[in-house]
């Protein structure tokens, strides 16, 4: 079971490294915002897995806050790029 979660966390970290490479390379601002969005969704999954491994029920609240508030920054930057804000 421990080996299973080590493999899971390693594969998700590899995906996060791919996203950060796109964050460095990305030619426009939209690519970078999209990389930020994907990183935040990956972080929600990792936080829930860590809360399960540490056996603390209260640790799930952090990922709940991310799921509720995580899209506000992306929408603000998208409105700025559109010229509306």
């Amino acid at each position: 079971m421990d080996l299973f979660f080590i493999i899971i966390i390693s594969v998700i970290s590899l995906g996060a490294i791919f996203a950060i490479v796109r964050f460095i390379k990305g030619p426009t601002a939209s690519d970078r915002v999209m990389a930020l969005d994907t990183l935040s969704v990956m972080l929600i999954a990792v936080l829930v897995i860590l809360g399960f491994l540490m056996k603390r029920y209260i640790y799930i609240d952090v990922s709940l806050v991310y799921a509720v508030l995580g899209f506000i920054g992306v929408i603000t930057i998208a409105r700025y790029l559109e010229g509306g804000i």
Binding site: R56, I58, V62, V65, Y66, I72, G73, T76, I85
Partner: peptide
């Protein structure tokens, strides 16, 4: 986790909006 909660709420929503404005 309490510091992480505050950092999440302030860093991703509030400070981004203030910087963009």
């Amino acid at each position: 986790p309490d510091v992480a909660l505050t950092e999440a709420a302030i860093g991703i929503a509030l400070s981004t909006i203030i910087f963009i404005i």
